[in-house]
Amino acid sequence: MVKNASQGFRHLSLPESVHEVLRSRILNNELPAGTPLVEIPLAEEFGVSRTTVRAALRELQTERLIEVLPRRGTFVTRMSAEDVTEACYARFVLESSGLAEVWESARAALVIDMTDAVRVMQLACDKEDLAGIVEADTEFHRLIVQAGNHPRIVEMWSTLNGQMGALMRSSLDRQGIDMAEAVQRHTKLITAFRRKDSAVALTALRLHYLDPTHG
């Protein structure tokens, strides 16, 4: 059983349980890029069938955390710089759409909720748990896109969630920053959102996603 920030506790199937453990290991760099993942040893470790392991690996592949190479095997991977940029741009566009038009009515409550999400992120950082940071990051940015009050946009944004773990792990590795810096970047974003000028907040959001040198 696992706790989801927006859904409470939920029971996991065997493939979901194996997926969650492997995902956490990959995100926390216990399984670094290039590590092979072999079905039989994994099935023996978890006490499940190879079919169960295969289902878990398919989900990891969808999330771009692993790569399946024909005749070579399955390996932990990292998103390319181009894929990271595209995913970040898509999230920025979706989160920024509609936000300015509800800025006056939504800003104060949004900042409070974003601050709570960063507190959760900091707790995960204290435990050196990148998987936990990814969950908190997803909640943080969900608050922003939901504030725009366009349910269809939120639905489109949610389709990108599966890639966020791979995106964050790849970004941390490529930029050479640690988890504490990732948390600090969200804190700085909150500072911009406290301003009454929506243009300031949207510029900060763009830099947050699209300028890797922005701290």
Results as ranks from 00 to 15, higher is better:
40 I>M: 03
66 I>Q: 01
53 V>D: 05
189 L>K: 14
77 T>N: 01
48 V>Y: 11
1 M>V: 05
174 R>G: 01
197 D>S: 06
160 L>T: 12
56 A>L: 02
146 Q>L: 05
97 S>I: 12
73 G>E: 06
85 T>R: 14
205 L>N: 12
96 S>P: 10
205 L>F: 13
89 Y>N: 12
93 V>C: 07
14 L>A: 15
187 T>M: 08
87 A>L: 04
202 L>D: 02
7 Q>S: 12
11 H>G: 13
184 Q>N: 15
98 G>V: 13
4 N>D: 06
78 R>V: 00
19 H>S: 05
5 A>P: 10
174 R>H: 01
73 G>Y: 05
47 G>S: 07
40 I>E: 10
57 L>P: 01
32 P>T: 11
3 K>H: 07
109 A>Y: 00
127 K>C: 05
142 R>D: 09
91 R>K: 10
5 A>G: 08
176 G>W: 07
19 H>I: 00
149 N>S: 15
50 R>I: 04
151 P>E: 09
32 P>E: 11
15 P>F: 02
69 L>V: 10
148 G>H: 11
86 E>F: 07
203 T>H: 13
203 T>M: 09
3 K>E: 09
55 A>K: 15
177 I>Q: 01
35 T>C: 06
28 N>R: 11
135 E>C: 02
69 L>K: 11
74 T>L: 04
19 H>Y: 13
27 L>T: 09
67 E>G: 03
152 R>E: 14
70 P>F: 07
95 E>S: 11
41 P>H: 02
16 E>M: 05
66 I>K: 07
55 A>N: 15
60 L>Q: 04
185 R>F: 11
59 E>I: 03
169 R>S: 13
67 E>I: 04
24 S>G: 07
164 M>C: 10
29 N>F: 07
210 L>N: 13
143 L>H: 06
134 V>S: 09
131 A>H: 12
93 V>G: 02
187 T>G: 02
175 Q>D: 12
134 V>M: 14
132 G>L: 06
65 L>S: 02
81 A>L: 08
47 G>Y: 04
34 G>T: 13
178 D>E: 14
113 D>W: 02
215 G>M: 11
165 G>K: 03
149 N>F: 11
19 H>T: 01
178 D>A: 11
151 P>H: 09
48 V>T: 14
91 R>Q: 03
92 F>L: 10
39 E>V: 14
107 R>T: 01
193 F>E: 04
57 L>Q: 02
127 K>A: 14
59 E>K: 12
4 N>K: 03
102 V>K: 15
112 I>T: 12
39 E>G: 03
177 I>N: 01
39 E>S: 13
92 F>C: 06
138 T>K: 15
119 R>Q: 12
23 R>Q: 13
164 M>Y: 13
156 M>I: 15
71 R>P: 01
80 S>L: 05
154 V>T: 12
191 T>R: 08
60 L>E: 04
186 H>G: 09
182 A>V: 02
209 Y>V: 03
114 M>N: 00
23 R>Y: 07
145 V>P: 01
32 P>D: 08
152 R>V: 15
172 L>M: 15
201 A>T: 10
125 C>Y: 01
181 E>R: 06
92 F>Q: 09
153 I>Y: 04
69 L>P: 00
38 V>S: 08
130 L>R: 11
147 A>Q: 04
5 A>S: 12
189 L>Q: 14
198 S>W: 04
68 V>T: 15
151 P>R: 08
28 N>A: 13
170 S>W: 05
